[in-house]
């Protein structure tokens, strides 16, 4: 533990507060909106797909493609996950195999 118990508790509260702000805000802001065909309704339909794309990029934000290993472990693991998930559509299998491949690559092949 780097922080004291009191400091740790404060950090946990901050993470909770920050998360809850982002979760509750839309419901407080757009209380009266109801039409499915409204602009907000449209955003509600398409955003889920865009946001997951953003999340994938977010996870890879610190990967360097100009320095060794040139993002190869990530690329190989993601390729395996994509193929496996397209084929079997088993979430645990895809996540488990993908992670094990990645760990193997960064621990033994691309050190």
């Amino acid at each position: 533990m780097t922080l004291t118990p009191f400091e740790t508790l404060i950090i946990i509260c901050m993470v909770t507060l920050g998360t809850m702000l982002t979760r509750f805000l839309p419901f407080l802001l757009f209380k009266g909106t109801k039409s499915k065909n409204s602009y907000i309704g449209y955003l509600g339909q398409v955003l889920p797909y865009s946001v997951i794309g953003l999340l994938v990029v977010y996870c890879l934000k610190d990967v360097s493609f100009t320095n060794p290993p040139y993002g190869l472990p990530e690329a190989i693991a993601i390729l395996c996950i994509t193929i496996l998930h397209y084929w079997k559509e088993n979430t645990l299998l895809s996540i488990g195999v993908g992670t094990v491949i990645y760990m193997f690559l960064v621990q033994t092949v691309f050190i």
Binding site: I10, G18, T22, R23, L25, P26, K34, G41, L47, P48
Partner: peptide, 26 residues
Amino acid sequence: FNPVYALLLTIMVNARHLFYGIAMLD
């Protein structure tokens, strides 16, 4: 220990939840 930074970065990381809320309003 930097609680303000923790709060701001959490909001940044979780900003995508704003979009989830909009999607679930209905």
